[in-house]
């Protein structure tokens, strides 16, 4: 029997979010939805890392995964911004040829 600690609850929830995101990345038809799915993947991976860094109180959590996830969040917003610029560019190219 697995102990139902916060690490287990949020770790498994993070894995579920990661799995949903993975399905979305592979299966979504719209570009925006696919990009959001990729963001969900990153959020799920972050949840697993933070859950693994959790220690039952009064012990303090491991700060190294926390720093890694903060780095991950900033890298993900950079990747999202670049992807959105490409989406806008593709959209304007498509509407130009469609007209």
């Amino acid at each position: 029997m697995i102990a139902l600690s916060q690490a287990t609850i949020y770790g498994l929830a993070g894995l579920a979010v990661f799995g949903l995101g993975l399905m979305g990345v592979l299966g979504a038809a719209e570009r925006l939805r696919r990009l959001i799915a990729l963001n969900l993947c990153a959020a799920g991976a972050g949840m697993v890392l933070i859950a693994a860094a959790w220690r039952s109180p009064p012990a303090v959590p491991d700060p190294v995964p926390h720093a890694l996830v903060i780095t991950g969040i900033v890298v993900m917003v950079s990747a999202t911004a670049v992807a959105l610029a490409l989406i806008r560019r593709l959209h304007s190219l498509e509407t130009d040829t469609d007209d």
């Binding site: 926390h66 996830v69 903060i70 969040i73």
Partner: peptide
Amino acid sequence: LGWARLVAPDVALAEVAIG
């Protein structure tokens, strides 16, 4: 909010502001 529950306030702040 979940990250705040896991005692990761720095990450929670970064997520809510950036993510």
